[in-house]
Design a protein around this nucleic acid. Structure first.
Lengths: 254, 254
DNA sequence: CCATCTTTGTGCACGCGTTCACAAAGACAT
DNA sequence: ATGTCTTTGTGAACGCGTGCACAAAGATGG
C-alpha cells in the first residue's frame, strides 16, 4: 500500500466501509476487462480470483452496495460495472489539475488510466517559467501564478501534487484556498489541511522500504543459525543504553 | 493507500505487526528531516505530529522494536534513525532493476528517494530495441533479452515493474524465474506469483477513484435533503433484473 | 411441479489494529 | 536526597475487517 488515508479514523461513509471503498476500483478494473471480452456474467469466485481477493470478502463488499447478484448464476458484468462506477462517482466528469510537471508529473499527465475512468486533466501547472506553454501529453503547461484562476475557471475539486517535497505544502495551501477539496500527494511530505479536505498519498520509496524489510527477513530466515546474518533483535544487547548519539555504527546508507 | 499487500493475511513477521512496518518509513522520513536540522531529541508527541500519526500509536510501534526512548526526555533522533534503518534493512545496499522505461519508468529512475535510502538502480530494462543504450537518469537502458543475466550478475532481488498492463505478468514471471523475490508493481494488473515472493502494488488511478468517492459524498451531503440525494440502495426495485445494460435510472446524485 | 444443483448473501466468531489512560521511569530542581 | 514534572511504555477495551460456513434463493432439468 503506497497509500493511506490521512487522519480520519476510517470513517464509514454512508455505510460503506473504507476498506470496501478501497477495493471497489479493483473490482471495477477486473469487471471492465471482462466487459471488453464480452463476458455476460461472472461468479463471485471468478471475479475474486481476477481481482486477487477472497470471494467471501468480495460478496460482502457487494452486499454493502445492494443485492446485485443472482443466486445460482452470479453477477451481471455490465450492470455491476455501472453500479460500481456510480458508487465511486465515476459516471461524472472530474476535472483534475496536476501541479509539478517534472518526470513524475509528465508520467501522470500521460497516464491513460485517468481519462478512461472519468478523470480529465484540466491543466498542468508548474512553477518554472521555462515550462510555460510547452505541451506535455498534448496539454500546454501553465505557470503557477495562474493557479487560482485555473482552479476556479475549470471547477476543479481534485488536485494532484507532484512537486518536490519542499514546495508541496505551499502548493497544497493554495489549492485548498482556491477550492480544491481532494488532494493526491506524491511529494514525500505530510500535508496539513483543514477539516473537510481529503488527502491521499503515494510514496514510491515507502513501498520499496517495506519490500526491503520483508526481503531482509527472508534472507535472515535462510541464513538463520548458520551465521549471524540478520539476527532478529536481541542481537544488540540492551546494555547499550549509554550515550545514544556517538558511537554506534551509524553507518546508514541514507 | 495506493498500496496493499498481496495475499498473505497480514502475517506478523518476527513479531512486528505489518501495520507498524508500513509506518516505519514514515517515521524514518520525519526523523531524517529532524536529523538534518540537527535536532538531538524528539518526543513522541512531536514526532507523531511530524509523521502525521497518533502519538500513542507511534509509541506502541516503537515498543515493538525495543525500548529506545528515555522517559521524561523523548527519543534520540540519530539513534532512532539508525535503529529503524536497521530494522527496515536499509543499512545494506539493495540493487533494484526497473523494467519498462516509459514515462513512469523514467520518473522512477530519476527519483531521488531511492538512492538516498539504500536502493541502487542496478539496471533499466525495456523491451523496445530503440531504447537500448539510450541513457536515462545517467544509466543506459538495456534490452529485455538480457533480463536474466542482468538479475544474476547484479544479485538483484527486488524488481520494479513499470510496463503496460499486458506485459506485466510475463515480465513478472521472468523476474521471479531469474531469482527476484520482491516486486513493486505499477502496472494495473493483479500479478500471480509463487509462494515466497512478495508483491506490492501502486495504482495511480485507484487512489484517484477513492478520492472521487469521497468527493462525491461531500457534494451529496451538501445537496442533501434539497433533492433526492443518495437513496441508499433499495432505490432500484429488484424487478430490474432484465437486460442490465441499457435503461436503468442512471440518476446518481453525484 | 418437484428435485437437484449452483451461487449468493450474511450471521457469527476471531484476530488485528487503534486508542485510552495510567503506572513506572527517569530528568531536573531544590 | 527528595519531590515534582515530563514522557515513555503498555495493559486493557473496543471496533473494524476478515473469513468460515450455511441457509435462502433461484436456475435448471426431468
Amino acid at each position: 500500500m503506497a497509500t493511506g488515508r490521512t487522519h480520519r479514523p476510517a470513517t464509514r461513509s454512508r455505510g460503506i466501509p473504507e476498506a470496501t471503498v478501497a477495493r471497489l476500483p479493483l473490482y471495477l478494473r477486473a469487471l471492465t476487462a471482462l466487459s471488453e471480452r464480452s463476458v455476460p456474467t461472472v461468479s463471485s469466485e471468478e471475479l475474486a480470483a481476477a481481482a486477487g481477493v477472497n470471494s467471501a470478502k468480495l460478496r460482502k463488499d457487494f452486499s454493502y452496495l445492494g443485492s446485485y447478484g443472482t443466486r445460482g448464476v452470479g453477477y451481471d458484468v455490465e450492470y455491476l460495472v455501472y453500479q460500481i462506477s456510480r458508487e465511486l462517482g465515476l459516471t461524472q466528469d472530474w476535472p483534475v489539475v496536476i501541479v509539478g510537471i517534472g518526470n513524475l508529473g509528465a508520467a501522470l499527465a500521460n497516464y491513460g488510466g485517468f481519462a478512461s475512468r472519468g478523470f480529465r486533466v484540466a491543466a498542468l501547472i508548474d512553477a518554472d517559467p521555462a515550462m510555460a506553454g510547452k505541451p506535455v501529453a498534448g496539454i500546454p503547461v501553465q505557470h503557477s501564478d495562474d493557479l487560482e484562476k485555473i482552479i476556479q475557471d475549470n471547477g476543479v475539486s481534485i488536485g494532484v501534487i507532484a512537486t518536490p517535497a519542499g514546495a508541496a505544502q505551499a502548493v497544497c495551501d493554495r489549492l485548498v484556498a482556491a477550492g480544491v477539496t481532494s488532494i493526491l500527494n506524491f511529494a514525500p511530505t505530510v500535508l496539513s489541511v483543514p477539516e473537510g479536505v481529503d488527502v491521499r498519498k503515494v510514496d514510491l520509496s515507502i513501498e520499496l522500504q517495506i519490500l526491503a524489510f520483508h526481503e531482509q527477513r527472508k534472507a535472515g530466515e535462510e541464513a538463520a543459525a548458520s551465521d549471524g546474518g540478520v539476527p532478529t533483535a536481541a542481537a544488540r544487547s540492551d546494555s547499550t543504553d549509554q550515550g545514544p548519539d556517538g558511537d554506534m555504527p551509524a553507518v546508514m546508507p541514507a
